[in-house]
Design a binder for these strands. Sequence first.
DNA 1: CTGGTCTGTAACCGCCTTAGGTACAAATCG
DNA 2: CGATTTGTACCTAAGGCGGTTACAGACCAG
Lengths: 143, 143
Amino acid sequence: MAAFTRFALGVHILALLASKRDGAMTSQTIAASANTNPAFIRRLLAKLNKAGLIKSQPGKGGGSQLAKGPKKISLLDIFEAVEAGRIVAAPKTFPENGCYVAANLAPVFRDFTSDAEVAFFSSLSDVSLKQVVKSLKTAAARS
Amino acid sequence: MAAFTRFALGVHILALLASKRDGAMTSQTIAASANTNPAFIRRLLAKLNKAGLIKSQPGKGGGSQLAKGPKKISLLDIFEAVEAGRIVAAPKTFPENGCYVAANLAPVFRDFTSDAEVAFFSSLSDVSLKQVVKSLKTAAARS
DNA sequence: CTGGTCTGTAACCGCCTTAGGTACAAATCG
DNA sequence: CGATTTGTACCTAAGGCGGTTACAGACCAG
C-alpha cells in the first residue's frame, strides 16, 4: 500500500520551515528541497495555512513561515491538515438482502476500528514538530 | 480517503463464517451477503486461506469455513491477511540536493510514525472475531 | 504607477491501484 | 463421468494522486 504520502511531505515542509525561523520561505525553495514542483507544494501549503499551522504572504519577498512555535505543532495537527477524513473505511450496509451480518456489521465494525484509530491519532499527537527537528539535527550531526 | 476497504469486507466474511459453524459456505453465498461478485470474494478467501484463518475445499459440496475458533482470530489477523504492507508511507530521501532535512528526515519520520502504527495494530489485536460476532448478535436482537 | 515576484487555484494529463467481471483449469464428490 | 466449487489469470472502468502549465490576485521596490 503505502498510503498517506502527503503526510510525509507535510512533515518535510514544516520541518524545513521550523529549521529556518527567520523570514519566509518560498514554495520554489521548498520544492527544491523535496524534489517536487512548486505548485504541488503550494497545494499542501494552502491546506497547512487553512489549518492555522503556517502563515503565507503573497508578493515580492513573500513566502511561508510557521504560525506558531514548533513545540505547539504535533504530528497529528499535520496529519489532519493534509490527509482528509478517516483511516479505516466502513463496510457497506445492505439491510435488504436478508443477512443479519450485512445489516448490522457497520456500527459494530465502526466501534472496534475507531478505537484503533484513536490509538493511532493519540500516538501522533504525542510528537511535536520540535522533537522532529531535534532528532533531525542529531541525525544530521551524526552523518 | 477511506482506505482499507478490503479489511471491512474481510471482517464481513469471517463474521459470516463464524455465525455458521457447521459446514462450509460457498463464495456464491458470501457474495450474495456482501452484495458483490463471487470472484472478488474468492480472491479475498485465498488470502485468508494463506494466512491460515480459514480452510477451503474445492469440488461439489465444498466451500470455506473457519480454520480455528473465533476466539483465536483477532482483527489484526484479518487486517494483515487482506491489507498488504505498511500504513504510513515513508518520505522519499534526496541526499544529493544539499538539504539536511531531505537527507535525514526518513529515519526520523519512520521512528515516530511506527510508534503510531504499533498503537493502531495493538488496538486491533485486542479484538477477537468472537467479540465481533457477539456484538453483532446483540445488535441484531435490538433491531 | 509600473514591473517583478509570489501565492492560490483551476485545469489537464498520465500513472497506478482497485473493484467489478469473465473465463477457464484443477480439484472433488456423487 | 458430470456437476460443482475453488483458484487464478485477464480485461475493463473508475478514482485518486502526483506532475505540470497557466493565470488571476496580492504585494513590494523603485
